[in-house]
């Protein structure tokens, strides 16, 4: 399978602190990969760097063959990030926000309608973002990602704030991703649920000088987050 993500010794500095220090990671097309690790390990930083929202200060990295240092815009064309925020405008309705997300990404307006249907947002489609509850906003964040029809879905704690119905919808989306030609990188602290969805787990280890990556199977027993030594970072 072709590689969707390829990182070699990737370093990302935040305020001169190495939030990621020398990460190697390969993700093949159609994989669902769980990123786990303690708070501050660098999961969010890794996802934001792959999305081109944070710079890669050294090492090399590609997303869909686009260099993360020289062609961040190219990399973004085929991915979507569901982060801690919705990336939406308070004064626009759910439908208007989704339509803007779809059209700005070069997708037809019908992509926003499909996202509304898929995430069950039809009852609140004409409600402005400012009036949505926290759970509805989380669903909208997923719908925004969906409206962009991404080939790589980067999910940062996607279960947080969702009710049981929302979680089931999210799980069905992740489960269906490989069949729809999508690759998913999922960062989560809800390990049991996330492991059931993932084919592989990548543990990101925190360290004073940064983090590293240790790979292991998702379905089997996964060891506790490794020390810097076990991650080969010492």
């Amino acid at each position: 399978m072709p590689l969707v993500v390829r990182l070699r010794s990737a370093v990302c500095l935040i305020d001169r602190f190495p939030a990621l220090a020398g990460v190697d990671l390969d993700v093949e097309e159609g994989e669902v990969v769980l990123l786990s690790g303690p708070n501050g390990a660098g999961k969010t930083t890794l996802l934001r760097m792959l999305a081109g929202l944070l710079p890669m200060h050294s090492g090399s990295g590609e997303v869909f063959g686009c260099d993360l240092r020289s062609d961040r815009r190219g990399a973004r064309r085929s991915l979507a990030l569901v982060g801690h925020e919705t990336f939406c405008y308070d004064d626009l309705s759910v439908r208007e926000n989704l339509r803007f997300a779809a059209r700005a990404s070069g997708r037809p307006a019908s992509a926003s309608d499909a996202a509304i249907d898929r995430l069950g947002l039809a009852p609140i489609a004409d409600v402005t973002h400012a009036r949505l509850s926290a759970g509805q906003r989380r669903r909208l964040a997923l719908a925004v990602a969906f409206a962009r029809e991404p080939r790589l879905l980067l999910l940062d704690e996607p279960h947080a704030g969702l009710d049981s119905v929302g979680r089931e919808v999210l799980d069905s989306i992740v489960e269906a991703a490989p069949n729809e030609g999508r690759t998913v990188l999922l960062a989560s602290h809800e390990l049991e649920r996330a492991r059931a969805l993932s084919g592989r787990e990548v543990v990101i280890a925190a360290g004073q000088a940064g983090g590293g990556v240790l790979e292991g199977p998702a379905a089997g027993s996964v060891p506790a987050p490794p020390s810097r030594e076990t991650a080969g970072l010492a």
Binding site: G52, R76, G83, T86, F87, C88, D90, A104
Partner: peptide, 18 residues
């Protein structure tokens, strides 16, 4: 200021718009 709401500025960057 509207681009500061809810990370909208990041959304604008993620959209791939020129």
């Amino acid at each position: 200021s509207i681009e500061q709401q809810n990370g909208a500025r990041d959304g604008l960057r993620l959209s791939g718009l020129d």
